[in-house]
Design a protein around this nucleic acid. Structure first.
Lengths: 214, 214
DNA sequence: AACATTTGACAACACAGCATGTCACTTTAC
DNA sequence: GTAAAGTGACATGCTGTGTTGTCAAATGTT
């Protein structure tokens, strides 16, 4: 009897699900910009709702709490970045170096153009909770897979012959991420080409080095 | 007239400064273990004081706030790590590989032995505040210098000939840090030798690769 | 012994944040 | 037109935290 919400009405020409999804998206957008602007710890649910033009009730309609929003925003942005990079790979001419350069360019270009995304991905995600740390780990692994597929596309098989590839690919991802962090922390003062070339150098050096000892 | 604390007395056989320094150290220790155990955001000043066996008043005697304590703890631990590594370098035989391996071993061994240190250094420091992010940046730069001096000791001059060495060294530091993060997040399940060898591989590959193109 | 300082346990206060609730006002459905 | 659902602005309860204050017991000084 007390079960009320059986049929959500249409409202302003949109169904209940549509409105809900739209609000959720507004919150995701607002979350990105508030988290990325003032940082996760300083961001309050209220300020996020204000930025989204919604009230707090709708926040808890879509997300259990602030941390859940951060998780979704993070996933959305990492997915977006991967998409951007895959798109860049697809458009690049199938020359080894141009291929890799296109992916790196897409990555760093996005970070430079969207400081909020950079801050969120590079700084705000770690140390919030075990759950978020785990999300970070998974995202890094996915980027490692991306790089690995890139490497095999480049025909650089040397790494694949080594034991503990996973660790090495994780290291390469970490190198790029750290270069990006440094870049952001120094106000993007280095030219993007220097950033890209240096990252590329690490990749190529690692891939081309036929390990003798170790 | 109201200036009371002109001469601190001796108490339990220690001078005022000694007692103050001792309390400060207790708080630093407690901060490390509480931050490293339950994470910075979840750590309260009260719980840190309880762990230190002190009351809150003494907290604010030594530190302006929780963030200031984190900064000091972080600095103390990075200094400690650098010391450990320098010590390992000093003891290692002057063979290129053994040299590098000794430093990496010291680094990873410390992290494995002291999960609190690992969590603090690898996860808790980022995204807290701009000040702390800056501290992270500086610490990473110092580790980069350490690696650079290691590289020149090894007589690997290839990197030094390249432009934007800073970026490349930052990348290498990032690679090691990321490998450590991944190791920690997977419960240190990889054997430490695999971790060290993979890190070393990245170093040696980078150093030995005579860049042709790029 | 008598008094001042140091300490520790704890109370008190202000404040901010999360999460939920209230209520008048719009928009839709019938 | 009327009733019900949706919405938005705001209020409320609650919890935790930072920070300061109180006071008796312990320790040192004279």
């Amino acid at each position: 009897m007390t079960e009320t919400n059986l049929k959500p009405r249409r409202y302003r020409g949109a169904s209940g699900d549509q409105r809900r999804a739209e609000r959720c998206q507004q919150l995701l957008d607002a979350g990105l910009y508030v988290f990325g602007d003032i940082g996760y710890p300083a961001s309050s649910v209220r300020s996020i709702c204000a930025a989204a033009g919604l009230t707090e009730r709708y926040f808890y309609e879509s997300f259990a709490n602030k941390e859940a929003l951060l998780a979704k925003v993070y996933q959305a942005q990492t997915d977006y970045l991967k998409e951007i990079m895959l798109c860049a790979f697809a458009k690049a001419e199938r020359n080894s170096e141009a291929f890799a350069r296109a992916g790196l360019h897409a990555f760093f270009d996005t970070l430079q153009d969207k400081p909020a995304v950079a801050r969120l991905l590079l700084f705000e995600i770690l140390g919030v909770s075990d759950t978020l740390d785990q999300l970070y780990y998974e995202a890094m692994e996915e980027f490692a897979v991306l790089i690995r597929s890139l490497a095999s596309s480049l025909g650089l098989a040397d790494i694949s012959a080594r034991p503990n590839q996973d660790i090495i690919y994780a290291g390469l991802v970490g190198a790029v991420i750290q270069i990006a962090r440094r870049w952001a922390l120094t106000g993007y003062s280095d030219p993007i080409d220097a950033i890209i070339n240096s990252s590329l150098f690490l990749f190529v050096a690692t891939a081309n080095y036929a390990a003798p000892t170790v």
